[in-house]
Nucleic acid binder design. Structure first.
Lengths: 252, 252
DNA sequence: GATCATAGTCGTCTGCCTGACGATAAACAC
DNA sequence: GTGTTTATCGTCAGGCAGACGACTATGATC
């Protein structure tokens, strides 16, 4: 990297967040409504400028805290504090992606359990959880009759990349537990997989697989009937992060 | 992403390249010697500033061409032109990673077949292929008696991340063929896996696996004896990019 | 209280894939 | 020819996943 001042050009650097959760059996992402041009009034991913003295992961954690109240531990390593997992996703730097100036955005992926309604500087109307299906296919209208416009900037692409990352990563890692509360049942974990992948899984084979993978789940001893039916054992996430052999995503 | 001028700060944005190849049964990376401070005389990854009018992937492809002569097709999608695969790896933005100023580096990973000695602006002494083992563990001396100093900046970390990406990605994708010439034998492909993973694989089981995976390899009809022994069939990479089920990396 | 619906948990069976490894084939070196 | 090297085919046993039957324990309903 030779330092050639004639080749140097200043860029603005931002972090954008793909914050995913599972609500009502659907994979949802956090979206905020833009208050100023460009794309005023359109939905976008939360994000902001990186500050001069903070690392990219620090900036992402700060934005996550500001937008959701979630606290992410050192986001450089996989983190699980206050339920939030945060990792770098990819970087987007098309010269025309922001009409105002040259902006390079380092997107991050955050996974969180189901949360209360988001806050965005106190303005409840400017942030919401939306099913990723609705955000990505802007055909038709949302549940509340509101027309679904495409996300601002290249955020649809970023969201799609984040969703794909989450879908593939729960195959071979224990990351699906990041969508669950600290204690959860096998059935709740299965519903996470079903929501993220959009498929139905056999409860018996799923139970055999996750309870048979060493280090994936540790029983807490408690039980719950919050899902109805027979009481289910409660588990916490074990120390294992990589699943070997992986969970198999059904074909088609 | 509200535009708050008080929060905006200019950054320098660079691309750094982890260019990997397999030479003499070892996974090697391209390293260039730095001509100016900081880290003058130390080895570093090739890279340079992103130009104001080019995308990140374009910048990475340009640097790759300048440093190796390799031409990478649209690097946004997985590419295979002139033998080079190029993809974005990760972005590194620690405020102190470059003592001169705030530099955010978007690292890219390139995989190439064995190439002639690298050129670096005609200065043959300032670029070389080095085994990643030597570059990452700076214990002792290199093959030519030269003391191995750590890579400049945070490039050891970047290189380690790139190597880990390559090691895991050849498990579930056909990416290992990017290390091979256009036509190759099953044995040559196996030696790629062995070099990248640093393990020995059973030739019979490997042969069964790769020839039995639909779309992985397509026979060209030719044979070769360039590896000695019985003539081996020649193959080209098939259309499949994802291997399902994946190649299994042996434990330990 | 009996019945039903719901959800959880344990087993069984079959087929596929992998690892271990024997055996054969086709080139080259001497 | 003999030995060496590499490629390729086959066999066999163990493990794991998909399909699915059976049983259990709760709340809801009649």
């Amino acid at each position: 990297m030779p330092y050639d001042p004639s080749a140097f050009a200043p860029f603005a650097v931002t972090v954008d967040l793909v914050v995913l959760t599972v609500r009502r059996h659907a994979l949802c992402a956090l979206a905020v409504r833009r208050g100023e041009p460009p794309f005023q009034g359109r939905w976008a991913l939360p994000g902001g400028f990186v500050r001069p003295d903070e690392d990219l992961s620090q900036g992402a954690a700060r934005e996550l805290l500001e937008e959701t109240g979630l606290c992410a531990h050192d986001p450089d390593a996989p983190a699980q504090v206050n339920g939030a997992h945060l990792e770098q996703l990819a970087t987007y730097g098309d010269p025309k992606r922001d009409p105002r100036m040259r902006v390079v955005s380092v997107a991050h992926l955050a996974l969180a359990p189901d949360l209360p309604a988001p806050r965005a500087g106190g303005d409840a109307n400017s942030a919401r959880w939306a099913p990723v299906e609705d955000l990505l296919h802007q055909s038709g209208y949302g549940r509340d009759g509101e027309q679904a416009a495409p996300l601002a900037f290249d955020h649809a692409r970023i969201l799609a990349d984040g969703v794909e990352r989450a879908r593939s990563k729960i195959e071979y890692s224990s990351l699906a537990t990041a969508f669950c509360p600290p204690e959860f049942t096998v059935g709740e974990l299965r519903r996470v997989y079903e929501a993220v992948w959009g498929v139905a899984l056999d409860p018996r084979n799923f139970h055999r697989k996750v309870t048979g993978t060493p280090g994936f789940l540790v029983p807490t001893g408690g039980t719950t009937t919050r899902q109805g039916g027979r009481p289910a054992q409660l588990f916490r996430a074990g120390g294992a992060t990589l699943l070997n052999p992986p969970m198999l995503r059904p074909e088609v």
